[in-house]
C-alpha cells in the first residue's frame, strides 16, 4: 500500500464491446459482448443456456450460481468480461451423456425440487462443496447452503438429498 504515482489513463485497457473467449461446459466459446453485461445475461441471452436462473439479481438468492474455474459464483453480479479465459460450468454441463450426476440423482430420488427454480443453484453449490470437501460435516453443509434460498421452503428434502448425494459420492471413491 505504497503511495501510487498517477499514470495516464491512456495506458488503461478499455473494453466497450469486447470479444470474450472462454470455455462453457467444456466448449470453446467466442462472442462479442458489451462490457457491462453480467455473466448471467451472457449465459441466458447470448448462449441460451437458460438452466441458470435469474432470481433476485443482487446476489442474495443463489439461483444464478455457476462454477467459474471450479468456484461457485453468483453470475448475476459477475461481469461476463471478467470471465475471459476461464472455464464456466452451468447446470447444462452437469449430466454427462444423459446420466445425472450424484447430486442431481439424489435430488430426483428425494423429490427435492418443488417449483424447481432454485434447484440449479443448489446443485451447483453442492457440486462445488463435495468436490472441495467430500467429507463435509453437517455444519459445513448447512453453511454452504446458506448461499441459496428456496422460496418454496423445501429445505428438509434439499438437506436429505444433499446428505444422500454425499453418501453416493463417498461410496464411489
Amino acid at each position: 500500500m505504497t503511495t501510487p504515482t498517477t499514470t495516464p489513463m491512456a495506458t488503461t485497457r478499455v473494453a466497450q464491446d469486447l470479444v470474450l473467449e472462454l470455455l462453457v461446459n467444456g466448449e470453446p466459446t467466442r462472442r462479442l459482448v458489451p462490457g457491462h453485461r453480467s455473466l448471467l445475461e451472457f449465459l441466458r441471452d447470448e448462449l441460451r443456456l437458460t438452466g441458470t436462473k435469474h432470481g433476485c439479481d443482487v446476489g442474495d438468492c443463489g439461483a444464478c450460481t455457476v462454477l467459474v474455474d471450479g468456484e461457485p459464483r453468483l453470475s448475476c453480479i459477475t461481469l461476463a468480461a471478467d470471465c475471459a479465459g476461464t472455464a464456466v460450468e452451468t447446470i447444462e454441463g452437469v449430466a454427462v451423456g444423459g446420466v445425472l450426476d450424484p447430486v442431481q440423482a439424489a435430488f430426483d430420488a428425494h423429490v427435492a425440487a418443488q417449483c424447481g427454480y432454485c434447484t440449479p443453484g443448489f446443485v451447483m453449490t453442492l457440486r462445488h462443496l463435495f468436490a472441495d470437501n467430500p467429507d463435509a460435516t453437517e455444519s459445513e453443509l448447512r453453511t454452504a447452503l446458506g448461499s441459496n434460498i428456496c422460496r418454496c421452503t423445501g429445505y428438509v428434502k434439499i438437506l436429505t438429498a444433499a446428505r444422500d448425494a454425499q453418501r453416493r459420492i463417498q461410496a464411489a471413491r
Partner: peptide, 10 residues
C-alpha cells in the same frame, strides 16, 4: 457500456 481495467492505483 464501457469497462476499464487499470493496472495501477493511480
Amino acid at each position: 457500456s464501457e469497462v476499464r481495467y487499470p493496472t495501477a492505483q493511480g
